[in-house]
């Protein structure tokens, strides 16, 4: 054996299949051939690294990062916070987390979004931050609204926030969506239901966190993210950071 310690395989019992016909757009955008499985090489175990010079301190505050001075977005003020971990329950420190979302009315600030709910002049809808040394991240934002989308005639997305996370190797790269506890649209959503495992759906559902809620100010939801873990090199010198 001579190669880098590999990341654990992507768990295909948890991740959605490429082809999920109830989510119609996947039908023509899913490969028909099997993926070719590769052992990790240096191309897979490495990945981009970011620093605080790449972002600004206020980038994680969606209540202010696009608002006019003294104003703010309409909607329920929330904190979204949690940790980025790997399957070995180790923190993933200093990694970039980016989010984007609709406003409280379910409208995206995007030139292709034509939904009739209005743009909020004080809400951009994106944020980014670096996890700290314990893998911890937090954002302030408003709770996004549900919105209709063209799939079945009457499909509505549950309230959700999109998240993008890097990790330390490019194979850990992940984009996912965070839903909110108690939303009756979750079990009805064809995109959520691409996930074959009920526990995996629960893991995408943020939990009301009263301990992190700021009284008379902002309500908190907790959302942890678990990236692929990595094998230790049991019979070789341990690699740095592993």
């Amino acid at each position: 054996m001579s190669g880098p310690a590999e990341y654990y395989m992507r768990d295909r019992d948890i991740h959605p299949p490429a082809l999920a016909p109830e989510y119609k757009t996947s039908v023509t955008r899913s490969p028909r051939y099997s993926l070719i499985s590769l052992e990790n090489t240096v191309s897979e175990i490495t990945g981009p690294r970011f620093g605080h010079s790449d972002i600004d301190a206020g980038d994680n505050d969606l209540l202010t990062n696009y608002a006019a001075a003294g104003e703010g977005p309409i909607g329920e003020r929330i904190i979204l916070h949690g940790r980025v971990l790997d399957e070995n329950a180790r923190a993933v420190p200093n990694t970039l987390v980016e989010i984007w979302q609709a406003n409280a009315g379910g409208r995206y600030r995007h030139k292709k979004d034509m939904y009739l709910a209005p743009i909020d002049p004080n809400f951009g809808g994106c944020g980014r931050t670096m996890t700290d040394e314990n893998g911890y991240y937090s954002f302030r934002t408003v709770k996004p609204g549900a919105y209709p989308w063209r799939n079945m005639v009457n499909d509505w997305r549950p309230a959700h926030i999109h998240l993008s996370v890097f990790g330390s190797g490019f194979v850990q790269r992940l984009i996912t969506q965070c839903y909110f506890e108690g939303d009756p649209l979750i079990p009805r959503c064809p995109i959520v239901q691409t996930i074959p495992d009920a526990d995996a759906v629960a893991q995408l559902t943020a939990t009301l966190d009263m301990n992190a809620t700021i009284p008379l100010d902002t309500i908190a939801y907790k959302f942890d993210i678990v990236l692929r873990g990595r094998r230790s090199t049991l019979f070789e010198n341990r690699l740095e950071g592993n």
């Binding site: 768990d11 948890i14 989010i99 995007h110 999109h162 969506q177 995109i191 995408l204």
Partner: peptide, 28 residues
């Protein structure tokens, strides 16, 4: 072991988060 967080589609508005200039606004 912890279980991996499932992937979800980036959706049609991925640009807002990862390339907001293309979505039509300057923020960063």
């Amino acid at each position: 072991y912890l279980r991996q967080t499932a992937s979800q589609t980036a959706g049609p508005y991925v640009h807002i988060g990862l390339a907001p200039g293309a979505a039509g606004f300057d923020i960063y």
